[in-house]
Amino acid sequence: MRKYVPKDNVQGKSYYTDRFWVAPRVPREEVSDAHFTGVVATLGALAKEAHVELGQLIVHIDARDNIAVIKALKEVCGYTQCSEQSAVDYLAKDGEFELFYQLLNVNEAKRTRVVCRIKKGEAIESIVPLFNSANFAEREMFDMFGIKVNNHPFLKRILMPDDWEGHPLLKTYPLHGDEFASWYEVDKIFGKEYRDIIGPENRDPAKVDRHDTKRFARIGYEVPFGTDISEGETQKEIEYSETLLVNYNKKESKTLDKRR
């Protein structure tokens, strides 16, 4: 029987799996720090769950409250910088995206991560009115995951071309690109009618074409040593470059003070 390959997550997977292996967890601590306790108290019921993981506060919230929470963090708790904003694809497992906002309090040198989850196809409200740094970050999230951001000033693809199809960081998107990606440049530069002549783009650097004897060894067509493999072709002399070898290996080793 052929091995089952899940279609909803085509990312790299461990070849060796042990079904009795239970992965340990990074310890989640109670919120005990004075500053973090204040943050959780300020958010009140808006924070569904809060814990400290590796020194940073993680607050889980409802995705609809994201503006209210981040506004409170900015205006009351002094989180004046949004360092990063992005998403994690949990579509295969839960049918949801996990979004996170990484915030920094410059005065107290504290970091808080606001985490919320949205279902597939749902949109999130933009936090650009609060943090302009989210402008590019939310565009990147839209580009990479296809998550729509409501009221974003300029929601457009940022890293991929405008006419690209598919969202590369989804777990369903293969590493070497999909069907669209392999024809994108051929279609765009030459036109669809040239597809047969040029062929799809090969994005796999490790690909070995066993019939290509120019660049690769005769994989699959190996013959005993000394067998004639010319197949009737006459051997051409290889032309080498005329450049003389330069002797870089001078006796003296390089030292800084002698190289003035």
Binding site: S14, A23, P24, R25, V26, E53, L54, Q56, E84, R113
Partner: peptide
């Protein structure tokens, strides 16, 4: 080398 290390479950942001 063949399988790679398996860190514990969790998330981290390190600046």
């Amino acid at each position: 080398v063949t399988q790679g290390m398996r860190p514990p479950k969790g998330e981290v942001y390190v600046p």
